[in-house]
């Protein structure tokens, strides 16, 4: 069972990276969250029923874990130090800088909006997003309209 699980996680680990990218600022915090998500996935795996796609199940657990860890609000830091902490710790390519910009834009949303928008960007339908989160399909539509407007302001 462990081998199958590890193969699936290895194959789909980008999902965890993406969730970590929008819920955590620094590389260290992302690494901690990545480990926490893999641990929680492994703990939940025995109860996984193949009724839903593995990646859908993975998304639900990853988003849940990212939000279920209570973190005290960080004290505002010097801007330069803050930028260094975000971008300087690992060797970045131009691709990851683009990624970082994407994550940074999405991090300006609140935690609930981040969950909804990440599922939307992953191409889940409103019905599927509603099922994963536990809200109605119609309400997902309402929230998506608000998020789109909010992101338009952020991105412009």
């Amino acid at each position: 069972m462990e081998e199958t699980f590890l193969e699936l996680i290895e194959e789909h680990q980008q999902i965890i990276h993406r969730v970590c990218g929008i819920y955590r600022d620094s590389p260290e915090d992302r690494e901690d969250l990545f480990q926490e998500v893999v641990f929680q996935l492994w703990k939940a795996y025995p109860a996984y029923e193949a009724r839903s796609k593995f990646t859908t199940w993975m998304y639900r657990i990853a988003l849940n874990t990212a939000m279920a860890v209570f973190r005290k609000k960080e004290v505002a830091m010097d801007l330069e130090e803050d930028m260094g902490r975000k971008y300087g710790a690992v060797g970045q390519t131009s691709v990851s800088e683009n990624e970082e910009r994407l994550y940074e834009s999405l991090r300006q949303l609140n935690d609930a909006e981040k969950a909804i928008v990440s599922l939307y960007l992953e191409d889940y339908s409103h019905r599927e997003i509603g099922e994963i989160i536990g809200i109605s399909e119609n309400y997902v539509g309402v929230r998506m309209n608000r998020i789109k407007q909010k992101l338009k302001r952020i991105l412009s």
Binding site: E7, Q13, W42, E99, L102, S118
Partner: peptide, 25 residues
């Protein structure tokens, strides 16, 4: 927002190998 779908789906690396992931469990 829809313009970001492509970038989003390409984001995230596959830098963790089987042994590293096993340790995380």
């Amino acid at each position: 927002l829809d313009d970001l779908k492509g970038s989003w789906q390409q984001a995230g690396s596959s830098d963790k190998n089987n042994a590293e992931l096993r340790k995380m469990t």
